[in-house]
């Protein structure tokens, strides 16, 4: 009797999980495995282009293509550009979000309006933000046509990446502000008041009390921000189509699309994708660890 109950419970559980697992199986795990398998083979002949290719032969070549591609300058460049992009967007975005949150965290009449404005960019997407800035500052149609040394900023070899990063920062500012605000609001008021009574000035209170207490929120925002920065695609595709002048904005995610879909080099794209996966994987592990720690502290 009891056994039958257990069996029924288990079958119900599997039935409830089935839809999710079918989707994950077909659209996450199977393609993931295929992506890992692909670079182990070299394919010759066949008709069609890229993902459309059919026929032809493929031979096992082991790690050869992995080594070639991971060791290539192209991969190193893409990884380096992705890192630069992340190092610009994440700290600046969080810093500005924190600044806005601190400024809006005071009792002033009408402060709600400012809060709403500061969080307003959450309503934009990467694509909307990019199109807004492209049509305002873009090289051809822009109202401003920002130039540096006579070169339109989005076509500039050095300044295109910071410009794209600026758009990404603006787009995520609303989210950063909201995350930092809720972090601030969760701080114990009495500690701050005690510091004020002890005669600590506003600056001192911020750096000696507020900032350390905010560290879990800040770390969380750093990791989530870094994961999302590593996956940046839409901003690159819209603001600097093709990956910028001299491929100077060709981040990893864009390189996967560019080499695999546009140029039809599936093997190269697969290796780049794994490179991106490893970065995101490490960051996610970091985040899960942190979450466990925070839960214990809370």
């Amino acid at each position: 009797m009891r056994r039958r109950g257990r069996l029924r419970e288990a079958s119900l559980a599997y039935a409830l999980l089935l839809p999710s697992f079918v989707v994950f199986g077909v659209f996450v795990f199977f393609p993931f495995a295929k992506n890992i398998e692909l670079p182990f083979y070299e394919s010759r002949g066949g008709v069609g282009f890229g993902a459309n290719k059919t026929g032809g032969t493929r031979t096992w070549v082991g790690l050869e293509q992995w080594r070639d591609i991971l060791g290539s300058e192209e991969f190193r460049d893409a990884l380096w550009i992705t890192l630069k992009f992340t190092v610009i967007t994440v700290p600046v975005g969080i810093g500005l979000g924190l600044l806005l949150a601190v400024l809006a965290h005071q009792r002033l009449r009408g402060i709600t309006i400012y809060r709403t404005i500061f969080s307003s960019t959450v309503a934009t997407s990467a694509a909307v933000a990019s199109v807004i800035f492209f049509s305002l500052f873009g090289p051809a149609s822009g109202v401003w046509k920002l130039r540096i040394g006579g070169i339109p900023i989005l076509e500039h070899p050095t300044w295109a990446l910071p410009a794209v990063a600026g758009v990404a920062i603006w787009q995520s500012l609303g989210l950063a502000f909201i995350v930092m605000s809720s972090g601030l609001q969760a701080l114990p008021d009495d500690v701050l008041e005690a510091a004020a009574i002890d005669g600590a000035g506003a600056n001192r209170r911020f750096f000696a009390v507020t900032l350390p207490l905010m560290s879990p929120t800040l770390f969380f925002a750093f990791v989530v921000g870094a994961i999302s920065a590593f996956k940046t695609f839409a901003e690159i595709d819209i603001l600097t189509p093709g990956g910028g002048t001299g491929d100077n904005t060709r981040v990893l995610a864009y390189a996967v699309y560019d080499s695999g879909i546009v140029s039809g080099n599936q093997v190269k794209a697969a290796v780049f994708a794994v490179g991106l996966f490893v970065c995101v994987f490490v960051l996610t592990l970091l985040q899960l660890r942190l979450e466990r720690r925070v839960k214990y502290v809370g």
């Binding site: 993931f32 993902a51 996967v256």
Partner: peptide, 16 residues
């Protein structure tokens, strides 16, 4: 599944 970015699965998913 949270750790696998879409970029890693698109090549095959496009075929699927």
């Amino acid at each position: 599944t949270l750790m696998i970015p879409a970029e890693v699965t698109i090549l095959q998913n496009v075929k699927t």
